[in-house]
Design a protein around this nucleic acid. Sequence first.
DNA 1: CACTTGACCTGTCCGC
DNA 2: TGCGGACAGGTCAAGT
Length: 291
Amino acid sequence: MPELPEVETLRTGLTRLLPGRAVAAVVSQADAPKSFPNAESDVRAFLVGASVTEVTRRAKVLIIVLSSGYSLVIHLKMTGQLVFDGGGKHFGAGHPSHSLVGELPDRSTRVTITFKDGSKLFFNDQRKFGWVRLMPTAEVMNLDFFRKVGPEPLADNFSAADFAGRLKRRARTSIKAALLDQTVIAGVGNIYADESLWAAKIHPATKVADVPPAAIKKLYTALRAVLTLGIEKGGSSNHTYVDAEGKKGSYMSFASVFRREGKPCPRCGTTIVKSRVAGRGTHTCPRCQII
DNA sequence: CACTTGACCTGTCCGC
DNA sequence: TGCGGACAGGTCAAGT
């Protein structure tokens, strides 16, 4: 589900809610071992009794750092969400198909962490692609994923030249596939790929090698702009999504093409079409995106 | 190597 | 109403 802006929104919210809280108990759903593949002995030794030090993010991965020298590394994949219950009201973040009205845990709850003050953090994940892994903080960046993942696109030192250089490795594939490749750049998913390509007037199926340098530069600027807007709007959502402070993300109402097939292009009025590129549903303006 | 496709899961929607 | 298939904001492994 979430892409960089959604995970970043979640990080910001959890940073206000979790640090200082001490874990009292952890319950994981027995029939979903892949959601929480950790040894019971590690959970007892390094999670129960530990308190949260800070919450960080790399790419689409959230990292809850603990006082025990261990961290909870969390990937929400397509449908994961984290919902904090401070007592009385649920504050959540993640997949929009889950509203806040239901009592938790529910049938999609894979892990429940109870803190000593009675508050709870629920990890819900309908499709069970996501996971919560407990591991030594010092080893987190040694995970295969982190060793291969590309730079943060919003980092101050990530330049247009870096962007162009990294894209060259994928010269024969589509520009959309290259954007979605986490080893090229971190954090871009289906929504922000489509939105940035529309903004840069590049068709997603264009081979990377066929995109002129000027258009690549435009895409660099557009990508950073849509990711920044996504964060400012609290992530993308449709109806029931909220961030960790209970506010709805509003980015979807600002989307230009994503899930807007059949509607007019905000730039030229041409009807937006949906197709399939890089194995993913893809939204384009057939008039604007001609490269 | 670069690149593509299917697998992993559950739920929902859409056409017959 | 029931059923089958396509599809969903993401990665991996395995194939060409």
